[in-house]
Each structure stands twice: as structure tokens, then as C-alpha cells.
Simulated scan of single mutants.
Amino acid sequence: MATKKYVAKYRLLKETYEGITGKGISDITWYRTVASLKQYFSLSIESEKAISIVETYALMKRKCSAFSFRTSDFSERWQAFKHFYDAEEVQYTGQQFLVALADYLKINLDDVPRSTR
């Protein structure tokens, strides 16, 4: 059974999300979103960083409404992000990162249009 404090924070996080995106979200969709945030970002509803995680996710959704954890290539993209995020204190310039990312994803940069890079 959820505590009053948990329910209040859960509701606050939902309202925060809706305020940032400017759209309502159904209870079941919010429940699934929270489950994904728990899986990928270690969200704990009552933690201090919960609001920050929800705000960041809401900003991503506002910029790209099609963003979803359930897309077929999300796991691949998440693994690439984690690979570079978990690297020990490595610093890249923009060009160095582009080359390292292309190597990681096994992409030939000559096949990528300059406007896409």
C-alpha cells in the first residue's frame, strides 16, 4: 500500500510533467512512463532527484514528442550513451566524439551527409 507521502509526490511528478509538456497524460500512460523511468534512470518516487529526472524527461518529450523508451532502437542508443557516459574521465572535442561514436556504432562517416553530422 502506498503512503500518503508517496501518493502526493507521485501526483506532483505527474503535474510537473504535464506542466512542462503542456499536455495531459492519462493515468495508465503515466504509470508506464514511471515504470520506464525506474528502469532506465533508477527513478525512486520519494528521492530528491525524482523531480529532476521527470523534468528532464518532460523536456525531451516537449522537444521530440515521438521520443519513447519502447522504440525498437532505443536500447541500442541507450547502450551507446552508457558506453560514453561511463567512460573514465575521457574528454572529446566534437570531431573526436563524432569519430569515436561512428567507430562504436560501426558507421562509415563518409556515408553520412555533412548536414546530418
Rank of each mutant, 00 (worst) to 15 (best):
S72F: 13
Y104A: 05
Q39E: 15
Y17C: 05
T33S: 10
V99A: 05
A58M: 02
V7Y: 13
Y92L: 02
E15C: 12
M1D: 03
L59E: 05
M1C: 13
T116R: 06
A50S: 03
Q91M: 00
R32C: 13
Y40S: 07
S44T: 15
K4M: 06
K14A: 10
S36C: 12
I51T: 15
A66Q: 14
Q96I: 01
R62V: 08
R62L: 01
F69A: 14
A50N: 02
R62D: 01
Y85W: 12
A58H: 05
L43C: 14
W30N: 03
T16G: 00
T21E: 07
A58P: 01
G22Q: 05
L98C: 11
R32M: 13
A35Q: 11
T93W: 09
Y31C: 14
S65T: 06
S42M: 08
L37Q: 07
I107C: 08
E18D: 03
L37W: 00
I45P: 04
A87L: 08
K14R: 10
V7G: 07
S47V: 09
D73Q: 00
I45A: 00
A58E: 03
Q95Y: 10
F81Y: 15
V34Y: 10
F84E: 04
T93Q: 00
V112Q: 10
Y85D: 12
R32E: 15
S26A: 05
T71E: 00
R114L: 06
S26W: 00
A50M: 01
K5G: 08
K82L: 13
V90C: 08
E89A: 04
F69C: 05
R114P: 10
K106P: 07
I45E: 15
V7N: 08
I107H: 09
I45K: 00
L105W: 11
Y17I: 00
K4S: 11
N108G: 06
K23T: 07
G19W: 11
V90H: 12
A102M: 05
H83W: 15
R62E: 06
S47P: 15
T21P: 13
A66F: 11
S115F: 12
L43S: 14
Y10K: 06
Y104M: 05
Q96A: 09
I25S: 08
Q79G: 04
S115A: 05
Y57R: 13
S65H: 01
T56A: 12
F67V: 08
Y104Q: 04
L13P: 02
K38Y: 08
L59M: 12
Y40G: 07
L43H: 04
A80Q: 09
A50Q: 00
I45M: 13
A2H: 09
I20P: 04
R77P: 02
S52D: 14
Y31F: 14
G94K: 10
F81C: 10
D110L: 06
